[in-house]
Write a protein that binds this DNA or RNA. Structure first.
Lengths: 112, 112
DNA sequence: AAGATATGCCTTATATATCGGTCAATTCGA
DNA sequence: TCGAATTGACCGATATATAAGGCATATCTT
């Protein structure tokens, strides 16, 4: 009977999604856009936008980010150039680490 | 022939995703976790984790957020309580606006 | 107050992401 | 150096999200 194993999410994850969804909703309303309008602009169904504003964990992350951008919600508080710079810096930091991770060394090294 | 209309994403969206993916990758490596380990911890296939670290717009946002949390990448720079507070504040701000948006008034009201 | 519009919630068919696996190439530990 | 492990890329089958629409209710405009 296939069981359909259900996935669970940490509370922090769900709350983060709820917040993002509400921020999108707020941004949309401040711009006086209807669900129909924003959905059309995004090229998606209104029902999908509704799931996004509710913080449904199953929606495509690309759509969520796109919607956020359209209604003026910034993630990473950085503009186009800022993001690009952050990507470079992250690449540099990754390059400093071993290419492969091996289960031998058990240090955690936790300073971001 | 069904045409399979392809979706496009803004550059800003794609770069944001690339950044998030790389941050997850960096976080994973700093914690010395292999792809296999993190995927198992998340309850997903390794191939899916690989798409996430590449910033694929099609992955579930819930998985991306969950992965970020596990490897110590903070979005919204706020902890559990902080997120909850932000949700409340966002709810309050939404409550101040009209329940329905009507296409009559065209003001944009852009101050976040 | 009345009419029009937006929103909430639900459902089915279809498109598509995920899973689970394989194979090759790379890189680390001993 | 050699062997074991990690990573990168790819693939088909299946589970699942999305699209599209309907209907009821709420709320705005005039």
């Amino acid at each position: 009977m296939a069981a359909t194993q259900k996935r669970t999410y940490a509370r922090y994850t769900l709350e983060g999604l709820t917040l993002l969804g509400k921020m999108i909703r707020l941004g949309r309303k401040k711009r006086k856009m209807t669900e129909h309008e924003l959905a059309e602009r995004l090229g998606i169904a209104r029902s999908t936008l509704q799931r996004m504003e509710k913080g449904d964990p199953k929606v495509e992350i690309g759509l969520m980010f796109e919607a956020a951008a359209i209604v003026g919600v910034k993630l990473f508080d950085a503009d186009e150039k800022g993001i690009t710079a952050l990507i470079s810096r992250t690449d540099d930091r990754i390059a400093l680490l071993p290419k492969h991770v091996y289960k031998a060394g058990k240090r955690v090294d936790d300073e971001f």
